[in-house]
Write a protein that binds this DNA or RNA. Structure first.
Lengths: 348, 348
DNA sequence: GGTCTCGTGTGGAACGTTCCAAGACTAGAT
DNA sequence: ATCTAGTCTTGGAACGTTCCACACGAGACC
């Protein structure tokens, strides 16, 4: 607890503490940063004074001297309206918590949506942040390229799809594995012809997930001819695509590249009077709030975002302490959260 | 545009620029902060060198000298799982954009969920932030009280419910007005007995919104006896409450204190085979992603979060420039977004 | 011609911390 | 008694910026 203190009071500084404790500035600094250098009684005395005055080192001064701000930059992209993908929210929160443990803070910045590089350079040149976390590797990694060029440290959430020569640290979730889990689950509960609703072919993430569906179908010995669809991530597009696929009565299940698409399928079912789970199975992707609250509950692939954040912070820590990163690429596995959109028994 | 530069190159400083331009450090500083003090040709020359070297002032040094970090602290609370309220996401994004325009950045920090004060003190004592934005005024304003006590600047999103003597700047959205809009809309499309699903009485926001419903009902001359329910913000609680209210066949519409509750009502309708909009009207609150994607679309009260962020930044700016705030309390009005959960004609 | 003002520009000092090289003290060895 | 090694502590300098007091020259005024 800090003692109550009015704003008008002067902030205690290192010098204040030193004088009060009868030691030099450097000794107080050591008490904070290299306590093992001090004799026990000196350390105790200094710490007592620090606590008494409620002293906290001035970040600006420390930053100026050490050239390290303990701030991590994150370009904050907004979830698109009309999609259910509020993944960012949960991820950012876990990232904030994970960085707090190492004494770092997250600085958000905005950028021109049309310029993926906007904002990075300015923070970097002002030495306002030590490193960046890059989340948007959907459309290649222009920001990562920029940072590599100027030698700034960073970690990406998302693997470097286009660049096999990339050597930067990254954390990602095995989307193909997730889609495979989803498809296998649908096959297990008795569906045979599982359709795939995915994104346009330009999306590497989308193609990766689709590959998981194809693998599961191949393992089951079922052809995927005419079952895979590529559309935009949008409820209505999914609804219409589902209507079309449902014209074929053998199609009784949908694995989707996102919850948005899964919810679109649920719309189509509602309009056709089909019962989710009982008549048609649906699995989404991301375990968004939408999947959780939509009727009757959408089974979904959940990314371990908490673990992703922890791994990212660990990598950042390694990079920032100038150690060599022994394991710069980390792939995590998603899990399946089963809800009623894949439960077949009607006695629910 | 900055010229490409390797990390190993020394960062240009004020002194570098001064030497190159043949002027003193102070002149360069003035070119940046008080350009009107310089003669035109001097200014042009300095600016040219700044651009040539890609110079950006070091934030730490500036912060140390001016005692102003240009950072705004925001305690980032996570949306609860199982609710559809991802309001924070949209608000934070607009806040980041609005602060960027004044050269400020948002620093996120976490805190012990059980201690509403956790985290503030540390950032403050380290002079890491200039001010705070407080979003959680649901449970009184303990954080605001702390900051007032130590004289730290802050602006809250949410009025000071419990403390009529509070004089701090705040921005809020008139929840009662929103609920009134919702209820009037339901009455207009032909419903007579409009039920209210709200939060527990302890929630000041919930009671405020409820008051809007009561006002609209009173204006229509309809009694609210037995129509108002107080429950927790949870899909299932709303679903069960709706089932109970629907036992009374005269109840044909629901105004809700949140989208989560509204979605719960939609669940009950689905289970009863009632058609949203056609048989029973439902309005939610917050215009969350859930309201947008859920079937068949949930009419909802939308808060002008973009405008809220802009007003907050404006207030912050005023407070930080030590001007007196002429208008410290700003109330904004929400709008109604109509979707199919309140459309009666079946030819939809 | 001297003083005053105004518009510009200057160099020293300061913000609060950590780095650095060296000083002081203690204890053991010569 | 002196030296040596090790432990602990010290004061000066530096990080890059802005504040401050002042210097300079040009024109205005008495």
């Amino acid at each position: 607890m800090s003692p109550s203190r009015r704003h008008s009071d002067p902030q205690p500084t290192l010098a204040t503490v030193a004088e009060r404790a009868g030691v030099s500035r450097q000794t107080v600094s050591n008490a904070l940063n290299n306590p093992e250098l001090l004799r026990e009684d000196t350390l105790a005395k200094v710490r007592a004074v620090i606590a008494e005055l409620g002293y906290t080192p001035n970040r600006a001064a420390r930053q100026l001297r050490t050239r390290s701000s303990h701030m991590i930059g994150l370009r904050f992209e907004e979830a698109q309206e009309g999609t259910s993908n509020a993944t960012m929210d949960r991820f950012v929160h876990t990232l904030v918590e994970a960085t707090a443990r190492t004494g770092h803070h997250i600085v958000l910045f905005a950028g021109d949506p049309d310029d993926p590089l906007d904002g990075y350079d300015e923070l970097l040149r002002a030495t306002a942040v030590d490193a960046f976390v890059i989340t948007d590797t959907y459309a290649g990694t222009p920001a990562a390229d920029l940072l590599s060029r100027v030698g700034a440290p960073y970690v990406t959430f998302g693997r470097p799809w286009d660049d096999p020569s990339a050597r930067h640290p990254w954390v990602d979730v095995a989307g193909a594995h997730g889609a495979r889990l989803a498809t296998e689950h649908l096959l297990e509960v008795g569906h045979a012809r599982v359709a795939w609703l995915g994104w346009e072919a330009a999306s590497r993430i989308g193609e990766d997930r689709r590959a998981g569906w194809e693998a599961a179908m191949a393992a089951a010995g079922t052809s995927t001819d005419g079952l895979g669809v590529r559309i935009t991530d949008n409820v209505d597009a999914a609804r219409m695509a589902a209507h079309e696929l449902l014209e074929d009565p053998t199609v009784t299940a949908f694995a989707c590249a996102s919850d948005t698409l899964g919810i679109g399928v649920l719309h189509a079912l509602a309009e056709r009077g089909l019962r989710p789970g009982v008549d048609v199975g649906v699995v989404g992707f991301d375990d968004s709030l939408g999947a959780q609250v939509t009727w009757p509950g959408l089974t979904s692939v959940r990314q371990p975002l908490e673990q992703v954040a922890i791994e990212i912070v660990d990598l950042l820590h390694t990079v920032l302490s100038h150690k060599t990163v022994t394991e710069p690429a980390r792939m995590l596995e998603p899990t399946l959260v089963v809800r009623r959109s894949t439960l077949r028994d009607s006695a629910r």
